[in-house]
């Protein structure tokens, strides 16, 4: 029971209290770049959840069974980014071969994910926070979920924004930033939640 409540608390923290995009500032490039249309936001979100969960799994294993026993912790950054890059490639090839429909939906987002700092961010955070294997995987999954949530919310708002009157100089990026700021204000309300 204690385990379940701990996992629940972790989910709330990763999705709301310490939201990766709005509170930790991770994964901003896709958040601003891929939030113009709702369906592409959904595709990107799904791809990120998948890669973040996988990346958490593999980087944790590499850190615990390769880098630490061999005392190569200083190679962490290189090892993690290479793991993520090859993982993304692998996922791309597998999906392409086995699920063409899914590939059509996610394919174009996969290469972008390698340079999504939320993925490398969650991998390093899992190690810094000294999470166990299961916790690391779940943290990766929840963080991806939090990312997807705000990405979809943002896409919904921006689709509406397109139709509203905005000063010409604020169109596009600037107004997207302001909207993100307002969303961050709202999410600030979650901090200090006693869990």
């Amino acid at each position: 029971m204690e385990f379940v409540s701990k996992i629940f608390a972790m989910a709330i923290v990763a999705i709301f209290v310490q939201n990766f995009v709005l509170m930790r500032f991770l994964g901003l490039c896709p958040y601003i770049g891929v939030s113009k249309k709702l369906d592409s936001a959904l595709g990107m979100g799904m791809a990120v959840i998948f890669v973040m969960t996988m990346a958490s799994t593999f980087t944790w294993l590499i850190q615990s069974y390769l880098l630490v026993p061999l005392k190569l912790e200083f190679l962490q950054t290189i090892a993690f980014i290479l793991t993520i890059a090859s993982l993304v490639q692998l996922v791309e090839i597998i999906i392409q071969k086995t699920a063409p429909a899914l590939y059509k939906a996610l394919g174009m987002f996969l290469p972008l994910i390698t340079t999504n700092c939320a993925v490398l961010g969650v991998a390093i955070l899992n190690i810094n926070e000294e999470y166990s294997f299961i916790e690391a995987i779940l943290n990766g999954f929840f963080a991806g979920l939090g990312f997807t949530l705000v990405l979809i919310l943002m896409a919904g708002i921006r689709e509406k924004l397109d139709k509203s009157e905005i000063p010409a100089s604020m169109k596009g990026m600037p107004i997207a930033m302001i909207v993100a700021g307002c969303m961050a204000l709202a999410f600030l309300g979650f901090s200090g939640l006693k869990i």
Binding site: L22, M23, F25, P167, A168, S169, M170, K171, M173, P174, I175, A176, M177, I178, A180, G181, C182, A184, L185, F187, L188
Partner: peptide, 25 residues
């Protein structure tokens, strides 16, 4: 306070980008 909290970062950035656009025209 909001300026050094997370939302402030987005707001300042958005306004600065808008300002840059205004200057360009």
């Amino acid at each position: 306070l909001v300026a050094i909290l997370a939302p402030g970062a987005f707001l300042v950035m958005g306004l600065l980008m808008g300002l840059m656009n205004l200057k360009k025209k």
